[in-house]
Design a protein around this nucleic acid. Structure first.
Length: 874
RNA sequence: GCGAGAGUGGCGGAAUUGGUAGACGCGCUGGAUUUAGGUUCCAGUGUCUUGCGGCGUGAGAGUUCGAGUCUCUCCUCUCGCACCA
């Protein structure tokens, strides 16, 4: 019998065209552009699908994180489009921010020029990757027609008292006399002049996100399509707690210190109070105590970053002022502690060293009394030893006077009630989340539309945009808006005033861009509500896991603000969220004489690898200086470890880049970038091209399942199993790597398929056409090109998603695994409809099973139909 | 420090509901073909014994007929911590 291996048929009549990605991709992209294939139009008769990827900061070039993020979004978009949805997939630019200022200072140019040039370059890169964006909806946040609505909205929030001004701490460089971002502080020093950074309180604008804390917390339960890890992080970030707010009086004074505690049951264990260095009591005590003043100054020499504060050495000093315990009347010392922050609550805490580990450490360090007031509920539990650590569990009260014998839970209520009755305190729900500070002492941002009049009144701007001048040069650390009369000086109803020179936090722009995409050109309102309510909420949002709390919380908050302003009708901005993992890559570091770190890109470094391909050492190509391999870190500009996707696109084309990115790891996991493997993806596309052009360019005639022989049925079944697997992986699981693996298996099955009869041709073509359709969301260019070669008029992107022929899935025989004591000892093929008893009988008769049960007593047989038999014997 | 994840061959990863650990791919080894062009194809590839079989999913314990998967303790790495975006 003549048996041809299909892959070796090498029929030159059809297969003479080579896979040429560069030529194909440009041509296919032109077809899409010319036919406006991705233009999204509202159509109430069709089900919509809004697929949104987090918009990029225009840093200059795309990085692999972008490629990964946008490929995921594109695959999901194209999948839903082929399933009949009216898909919107927009793209835009988060165009304000700090890097533009740094570049501007360095180049003595304007941030706008740098930003606009970067956008132009990166847009070309995105287009070369073939993403199905409706570019007519492009949004650029630094353009006045965008931020004017943000300014307008802010004034509405002022009117509703949802925005307000208060003082708050910033990082201050006393040498440059400028405010520093946390990123501009390195080891507590200014990154420019290495002066120790201080905290400074300045007036800033805030949004009352705390007013929405309860709703933001409660509606997390409605976010079924969000990952649990993000929801947990948001719950913890909001940090709802129930406790008691109470006052401690000062000795010989009618003044009080207010504190909040979630553990009023430990109230009798209070042996001191701790206040922030900025607390009024601290300031007053320091007036007559120079040592204390020195300590307060020292406390101010730190950054505002919580991680810094939490990890620094806990230090304190007694103020000498005493507070009166509200229950016992005993006097307790008031200490200043460097870890208590004025921005949190009242800036003072009660300390219970017996039952709080941080208080215990502080008390031990400064020899303050440690008092036990809680003990374990039953004697069987581990005894506490307060000389070793605090006892932080709940239990039963002791040494607590009238409250002795109560459990912690009972005491929480009893003591709270006692304080309320005596008017010394009240039950209070508190949140860890703080109001959102939106002021930035920066130039390259949207101006905050507020005006301070000469008469002292603060008023909102009435005309928008309050335009940011684009002809100013940054020449130093501070914003050129300051002391700039042409920007600042303004008259309101005949009263002269000065504009606010602070600009908005860039998280403001990224909190509502998704809504603006629905009506990007609307010049009469922030949003066209008809458009917004058709497209919103976002059906699938995709972005980096690093945004789990801040951006994704502001995004939800802003949606609720817009809802309450009547702009949108939904309660939440996004139904489903996919948080892609970081793209990490190797970081290369050298240190200068001062110990300063310098990061080098992989191009600058020569890496020496061992025989297994593992990097063992490295040196600078230019100087030969040894380089430290600092391990895998998030790709970032500051770490100089970004892998340039452009090189990949130039060499292999967009489809290979897309395929490799999706195949390399599951989307939610971190991706450790390695160049190995890209060629494997390319090889697969070449094989697909070859096998398709050689076997699928004919008109496939229809066939009936019942007429197929065993091999044909097997291939047809495999094709249908792949349809089912890939549909589930794309649509439900978002597991793109396994979907691609399944398609590769199908292609391998076709290549290995041995042709025997005339009926093979259509079955093989069906498998290959299906492959092209299933793969088209990932590698749309090659699939379109093959589709054209097969003579199809319709674009692949408009083709229907293949449906699974359920009839083909039924199997007559199933594989049963035979285990003895949990170890696999054999496999049998049995008829699918066989019952448990019959399977058990067959299992016990199996030769190898007999060998392992020989001389033993069968104690139990577990039969899992369709899967396995486990025989327990000893 | 606090909050959230992750850990499986030489490497990226698969195992969806507790049921054959290592799919798919990279790399490597051997062979064939072509002899230039990221060649292509075939075979092998967890590990120790190199037959039978034993051991294997960061470490240790537990639940179960059966654990990569569930529970507890610990270790390591990654992300976030409010002015990088």
């Amino acid at each position: 019998m003549q048996q041809d291996n299909i892959a070796q048929q090498n029929s030159t009549d059809n297969g003479n065209q080579e896979y040429n990605p560069q030529e194909i991709e440009i041509r296919v992209q032109q077809t899409w552009t010319e036919n406006k294939v991705f233009k999204a139009v509202k159509d109430n008769s069709r089900e919509k699908f809004y697929c949104l990827s987090m918009l990029p900061y225009p840093s200059g070039r795309l990085h692999m994180g972008h490629v990964r993020n946008y490929t995921i979004g594109d695959v999901i978009s194209r999948y839903h489009r082929m399933n009949g949805k009216n898909v919107l997939q927009p793209m835009g630019w988060d165009a304000f921010g700090l890097p533009a200022e740094n570049a501007a200072i360095k180049n003595k140019a304007q941030p706008s020029t740098w930003t606009i040039e970067n956008i132009a370059y990166m847009k070309k890169q995105l287009q070369s990757l073939g993403f199905a964006y409706d570019w007519e909806r492009e949004v650029t946040t630094c353009k006045p027609d965008y931020y004017k609505w943000e300014q307008w909205f802010f004034t509405k929030l002022i009117e509703k008292d949802l925005a307000y001004k208060k003082t708050s701490a910033v990082n201050w460089c006393p040498n440059d006399e400028t405010v520093l971002a946390n990123e501009q502080v390195h080891d507590g020093l200014c990154w420019r002049c290495e002066t120790p950074v201080e905290k400074k309180e300045i007036d800033q604008w805030f949004l009352r996100i705390t007013n929405y804390a309860e709703e933001l917390l409660e509606s997390i339960d409605d976010l079924d399509g969000w990952p649990d890890s993000v929801k947990t992080q948001q719950r913890n970030w909001i940090g709802r707690s129930e406790g008691v707010e109470m006052d401690f009086g000062l000795e010989n004074s009618d003044q009080v210190v207010s504190i909040y505690t979630t553990r009023p049951d430990t109230l009798m264990g209070v042996t001191y109070l701790a206040v922030a260095a900025k607390h009024p009591i601290a300031a007053r005590a320091a007036e007559t105590n120079p040592e204390l003043a020195k300590f307060i100054a020292e406390c101010n020499q730190s950054t505002t970053a919580e991680a810094d504060i939490a990890t620094m050495e806990k230090k304190g000093m007694s103020t000498g002022v005493k507070a009166v315990h509200p229950v016992t009347g005993e006097l307790v010392d008031i200490w200043i502690a460097n870890f208590v922050l004025m921005d949190y609550g009242s800036g003072a805490v009660m300390a219970v060293p017996g039952h709080d580990q941080r208080d215990w450490e502080f008390a031990t360090k400064y020899s303050i009394e440690i008092k036990q007031v809680i003990q374990a509920e039953s004697s069987s539990e581990i005894e506490c030893d307060l000389s070793k650590s605090a006892f932080t569990e709940k239990g039963v009260l002791i040494n607590s006077g009238e409250f002795d014998g109560l459990t912690s839970e009972e005491a929480l209520q009893a003591i709270a009630q006692w304080l309320e009755d005596k008017n010394l305190g009240k039950k209070q729900v508190n949140y860890r989340i703080r109001d959102w500070g939106v002021s930035r002492q920066r130039f390259w941002g949207a101006p905050i539309p507020m005006i301070k009049l000469e008469n002292g009144k603060m008023v909102t701007a009435k005309e928008f945009p309050v335009e940011l001048p684009t002809d100013l040069i940054l020449d130093g650390a501070n914003s050129p808006l300051i002391n700039n009369p042409s920007f600042q000086d303004v008259e309101v109803d005949g009263v002269p005033g000065k504009r606010e020179t602070d600009t908005f936090d860039t998280f403001m722009e990224s909190s509502w861009y998704y809504a603006r995409y629905t009506s990007p050109d609307c010049d009469t309102a922030m949003l066209d509500s008809d458009e917004a309510n058709y497209w919103l909420p976002v059906d699938q949002y995709i972005g980096g896991i690093e945004h789990a709390t801040m951006h994704l919380l502001y995004f939800r908050f802003f949606h609720k603000l817009m809802r309450d302003a009547g702009l949108v009708s939904s309660d939440e901005p996004a139904k489903n969220l996919l948080t892609q993992g970081m793209v990490l890559s190797e970081t290369f570091v050298t240190k200068d004489k001062k110990g300063g770190k310098h990061y080098h890109s992989i191009e600058e470094v020569e890496v020496v690898k061992d025989s297994k391909g593992k990097a063992i050492s490295a040196s600078l190509k230019s100087t030969g200086e040894p380089v430290t391999l600092a391990g895998m870190e998030k790709m970032s500009k500051s770490k100089n470890n970004g892998v340039d996707p452009q090189a990949l696109i130039n060499e292999y084309g967009a489809d290979t880049s897309r395929l490799y990115t999706m195949f390399a790891s599951p989307p939610e996991q971190t991706l450790e970038w390695r160049d190995d493997g890209v060629n494997g993806a390319h090889k697969f596309l070449k094989r697909l091209w070859k096998v398709y052009t050689e076997n699928a360019l004919h008109d496939g005639q229809s066939f009936s399942f019942d007429d197929l022989n065993k091999e044909q049925k097997a291939l047809y079944r495999k094709t249908n199993e792949t349809i089912e697997k890939v549909s589930d992986d794309f649509g439900r699981r978002h597991s793109f790597n396994t979907a691609i693996a399944a398609i590769m298996e199908l292609v391998n099955a076709v290549i290995k398929y041995t042709s025997q009869s005339d009926l093979d041709k259509p079955v093989v073509k069906h498998a290959l056409d299906t492959t092209v359709l299933l793969l088209s969301p990932v590698v749309p260019h090659i699939c379109q090109a093959l589709w054209e070669l097969a003579g199809k008029q319709q674009l692949v992107v408009d083709a229907d998603w293949p449906t699974c022929d359920k009839k083909a899935l039924t199997k007559e025989e199933v594989l049963i695994i035979l285990q003895v004591n949990g170890k696999t000892r054999g496999k049998i093929e049995v008829a699918a409809e066989l019952d448990k008893a019959a399977i058990e009988k067959l299992a016990l008769e199996d030769g190898n099973v007999k060998k392992f049960t020989d001389g033993k007593t069968v104690r139990k047989v577990i039969v899992v139909p369709g899967r396995l038999v486990n025989i327990v014997a000893n």
